[in-house]
Design a protein around this nucleic acid. Structure first.
Lengths: 341, 341
DNA sequence: GCCCACCCCGAGAGCGCTCTCACCCTGTCC
DNA sequence: GGACAGGGTGAGAGCGCTCTCGGGGTGGGC
């Protein structure tokens, strides 16, 4: 079954078409500078023999791999608990295959893996890397920077405060948060609270900043730490109700957090949205649509983020071909109105 | 920043260590048959120069790539709506990196992509493939079979009815379903219904079979078609309540379906589990733990499935080294008791 | 003390491809 | 009609590695 039929080489195709290896190579790579009849003959020979170029041999001389690594630093399983990652991956995949690039997936498990990833990226197996760096103190980005591989980050890396020329794609967390909080205020709510995400992640910090942009530092009691999980949302909501029983709106750092908050509100007999309006973030469908009531939330186009990351990286790799130097991109968000606010 | 420092070659290391290329190669690949002092010298030279083998050059001669493709056929977004896929990927990744293999991810979008995948796999870029074949009529498996690449499937492929020697890893859908239904019967329920999954998938068919193993064909009215989605679960539950108002238990094909069913039950004023007991399948955490009441469900060790797939494939690739021919593996499931049944 | 076996190591031939360079052939201009 | 472009094609080198094979050194047995 697994008979290893010796795959035809360029040589074989050349022989069959009655031309030189060089000509076959030219045809296979686009056919520029080869006269039509010859092109045709070579094409036929390729077809008949079922020739497929040997990528290893090609890379050996071109020093290109047409492959990019996707690095997902994943100390916690959170990444896997939502479809965020999968959607982004999908966007990346689409864009990469559209440009005949392969996607090499690198999942890291704990610190020990960092060295391995660094070695791999430095090892010149891929032309570039797409990196999801979630935490402020993640040593991975630096390792990668050192490896000298062109890289695009998913989400603003914690250490990139305008100075360095790091390329990343992020959604407008701050702006989205502002819109959500403004919506709550527009509803006439005056005691608008915020349950934060894990603040060692830039997305959480940015959302908090957005909240503050609108609410100022009015009542610090209204800001409670969460951690992006439903359990964290429950805990925070309980604390909030104890501390500020008059709270009439909650902007949660993400939908998971919001779902936890909703549960506590119901448990304590607060009606949503009548007594307390709730807004989440992410528009994570299996959650946002299934909560009771369905969640008003801030949507980000996650798949587009992935696609964009890939596009920026490929552009960077093609820079020599006159492409512009890519810069960071921040995608807009949209408020999705459902029943909770 | 992206200075292309010419990476050191075997030649360079050899020169520095004062030995031949062959010796360096031997050391780099394990060091068998090289005397200790030399090994040491070479190691040092490698270290000092920061030598990393050129994978392309290596593959060119060994005809090995130490890379396997993971193919996810994904006509529908369902795959992405749950963490199933991500967990499996994680198991795969762990096992592969433990054996120094790379993971090349191939996501297919619609039928047109099949050809591309076939070409890629046939193109000898990877040593083997792990394929998630969800549907009975999926043409992908055949394409892959034809490509002659060693393959392990995730989930029993529809056409593999014992005859062919296809290798796959699946969980014991039928057995798990039996256990769930038996549990319901053990609770004293007599009108146990089943909301199926999308029956063009073997997992759904197997779960239905498991249900029938226990309930027989008693009352065909009690079996309603679902499609693995919450919406499908709602629809089916409504139909069920209309048709058989005396239903006192529901075994749903998965947790998403169960969550939809729960919503309808609450809406119609049926108490769970007092009036109607509900069991799901998958133990999909963000859903199963968040439903009201928390869902009793059948857990499968998804990450382990992934790990096992990778292990079987690697074993297959190593068969020449005396490893046994791998066969299909079916993993056990466990009933997780929460509040809904 | 000699021969043989065995173990290390180095030389060299490729793996399949790209790419430069030189050659040739056609056409054009004077 | 001859020289000169200029584009199309082929020859050949070389990318960095593995692996076979042969030579030389070492040790053991008689």
């Amino acid at each position: 079954m697994t008979d290893t039929a010796p795959r035809p080489t360029l040589e074989a195709v050349a022989a069959r078409a009655g031309v030189s290896r060089a000509t076959v190579s030219r045809v296979v790579n686009g056919g520029d500078g080869v006269r039509e009849p010859l092109v045709e003959r070579v094409r036929r020979a390729v077809e008949e023999l079922g020739y497929v170029p040997n990528q290893a041999a090609r890379s050996l001389v071109t020093r290109r791999h047409d492959a990019v690594a996707v690095v997902v630093a994943e100390p916690e399983t959170r990444v896997f608990a939502d479809p965020f990652f999968a959607l982004q991956l999908r966007g990346i995949s689409k864009e990469l295959t559209a440009h005949d690039n392969q996607l090499v997936l690198l999942l890291t498990e704990g610190r020990d893996d960092h060295a391995r990833v660094g070695r791999y990226l430095g090892g010149g197996h891929v032309d570039g890397a797409l990196v999801f760096s979630l935490h402020l103190d993640d040593p991975l980005p630096e390792l990668i920077q050192r490896a000298g591989v062109p890289t695009v980050f998913g989400g603003r890396p914690g250490w990139s405060d305008g100075t360095t020329d790091v390329v990343y794609v992020d959604s407008d967390n701050r702006g989205g948060a502002r819109e959500a909080v403004r919506h709550l205020v527009g509803l006439g709510r005056t005691r608008v609270a915020h349950i934060t995400g894990a603040l060692d992640q830039t997305s959480a910090a940015d959302r908090l900043d957005g909240y503050r942009d609108v609410m100022g530092d009015a009542d610090p009691e209204l800001v409670v730490r969460g951690d992006f999980t439903p359990a964290g949302g429950e805990r925070a909501m309980r604390e909030l109700l104890d501390r500020c029983p008059d709270v009439d709106a909650v902007f949660a750092a993400n939908d998971l957090t919001a779902s936890g908050a909703l549960r506590v509100l119901r448990e304590r007999g607060r009606r949503v949205p009548e007594d307390v309006a709730v807004i989440g973030f992410d528009d994570m469908l299996p959650v946002a649509e299934q909560t009771d009531p369905p969640l008003t939330t801030v949507r980000q186009d996650i798949e587009e983020m992935g696609r964009l990351m890939a596009r920026l990286l490929l552009r960077d790799l093609d820079r020599r071909n006159g492409g512009a130097t890519p810069a960071a991109v921040v995608l807009p968000t949209t408020l999705i109105r459902r029943a909770s606010a």
